[in-house]
Simulated assay, not measured.
Amino acid sequence: MIKATKRVIGTLLSTKAPRTLDAPQASPVVRSHFLRSLVLKMSIRRRRHHDEDPEPNSGLTQPTRVPCGTQTYAIVSRSSPMCTFLTADTHFGHALMLKPEACDRPYSSVDEMDQTLIDNWNAIVHPRDTVWHLGDFAMGLDERRVAQIFYALNGTKKLIVGNHDTDKKGNILLSLQRLQWAEIAHAAEIMHDGQRIMLSHYAGYAWNAQHRGAYQAFGHSHGKLLGMPGSIDVGVDAQDFKPVAAEEFVRQADYTIEHAEQRIEDICMRLMNKASQYAARDGAVKFRERQAGRAKP
C-alpha cells in the first residue's frame, strides 16, 4: 500500500502538465493539499475493499486469540452476513447459580462458570454481530471485573434491563451504566427475516402483536418456566449456556406453535404442580396477616 502510494505521488511530481491560459500551473501549496487528499482517498478505498471483499472462507475460521486482563479470549471470524443473537441471565460472578437449590450449573467454581460462558459466547458471536442481553448480566462483582467481562465478549451488545441490573430504587447499576451498551431499554422489538420478536426480561402471558404472529423472547426464569406458544426462554440455562441466534430462536418458537396443544397441556400441568407453593410465599403470608387484622374487633 505504502509503496504503491509513493509510486503514484512520484509520478505526479515528475509529470509536467501542459500549461494553458485557462488552466495555470497549480501552486506548491495546492499540489501539496491535492497529494494529501489523494493519499487519504486511496487509504479509505483500500480499507473499504478489505471490509467488503473478505477472503473466501467456508463458514467459521479458527478463532484468533486476544488477551483480556490475565485471561485469553477467542474472536471468531465468519464470511457469512452478520447475525443477531439473544441471551439472558448470565449472572457473571454469582455463586448462587452453582447451588442445586438454584440453577445447579455444572461448574466447580464461579471463575470456571464465567470463563465457560465467555468462551461459549465468543465461539459463535462475531465482533460485528449484535447480541441482545435480556437482563441479569452480572451480580456480586466490582465495576472493574464487570467491565473486564463485558469487553471480553464479542459483538455489539444491547441490554434489556433485568431485576438484578438495578438497585433497590430501580436505578440501573452504575457498573452497567458505564459500559458501552449500544442500547439500554426495559423492552424492545426486533425484526428477523420478516418475523417480529418482542424482547423482555420477563415471560408474558400475552405480548404486543401476539395475535398478528409476533413472537416473544424472555429470560429471568432460568429454564424453569415454559413460555406460551410463540414464547421462548433465551436465558443461558435454557440454551446450553450460550447465546441463541435469532434464526434458531424462530425455529424453536415455530415448533411451539406447531405443537401448541401439547405446549398448553405442559404449561397447565406445571402450574397445577406449583399451586401448593403459593401458600408459603410472602404474598400469601401477608394476605393472612391482613385477614387477621381485619378480623380483630
Rank of each mutant, 00 (worst) to 15 (best):
A275I: 05
A74P: 05
F85T: 04
D233T: 00
K41N: 09
P297G: 15
W132T: 07
L86V: 03
R178K: 11
L117I: 13
L38W: 09
R288V: 14
H33F: 12
R212Y: 09
T5Y: 01
G10E: 12
Q177H: 07
S79W: 01
A260E: 01
E101T: 11
R178L: 13
M1K: 11
K242H: 09
W121R: 02
D165Q: 08
A4Q: 10
Y73H: 13
H164E: 06
Q71M: 11
C103S: 10
H222I: 00
V30E: 06
M113L: 07
V250Q: 06
P28T: 02
Q216M: 08
A284F: 10
I124L: 14
S37T: 13
A26E: 08
L173G: 01
L176D: 07
A238L: 09
S221G: 05
R294K: 14
E258A: 12
T15V: 14
L38K: 10
Q216L: 13
H201K: 11
V30Y: 00
E289N: 13
I257C: 11
P18G: 05
N154T: 12
A188F: 13
G283R: 08
P127K: 10
R19K: 08
P106M: 03
E112C: 01
L174F: 03
E265V: 02
A253L: 00
E143G: 04
F218I: 02
V110T: 14
N163G: 03
S80I: 07
K41D: 14
V76E: 08
A260I: 00
T166S: 11
T256S: 11
D129G: 05
M82H: 07
N171R: 13
Q177Y: 05
S276I: 00
V29L: 14
P24V: 02
I197A: 07
A23F: 10
R178W: 03
A74R: 12
D240W: 04
V8K: 10
K16I: 12
S80R: 05
S108G: 13
S77E: 15
T166F: 08
G10R: 12
Q115T: 15
G59V: 00
H201Y: 02
G283V: 13
A147Q: 15
P24S: 05
L21N: 05
K168C: 07
A238N: 15
M198D: 01
R78I: 02
L60V: 06
F218N: 06
A138T: 08
L141A: 09
T11S: 11
T20P: 01
F92Y: 06
T84L: 01
E258K: 08
H186L: 02
A217T: 12
A217Y: 10
Q252P: 03
S200W: 10
L141H: 04
R294S: 07
T5C: 01
T87H: 05
E55Y: 12
S108Y: 06
S58N: 06
K157V: 06
A188R: 15
K6W: 11
R281H: 14
T15Y: 12
D193C: 08
L176Y: 04
L21V: 09
I75S: 10
V234G: 08
D119I: 01
R46Y: 03
F137M: 02
E112N: 09
Q195M: 01
L153M: 15
K158T: 03
D114E: 14
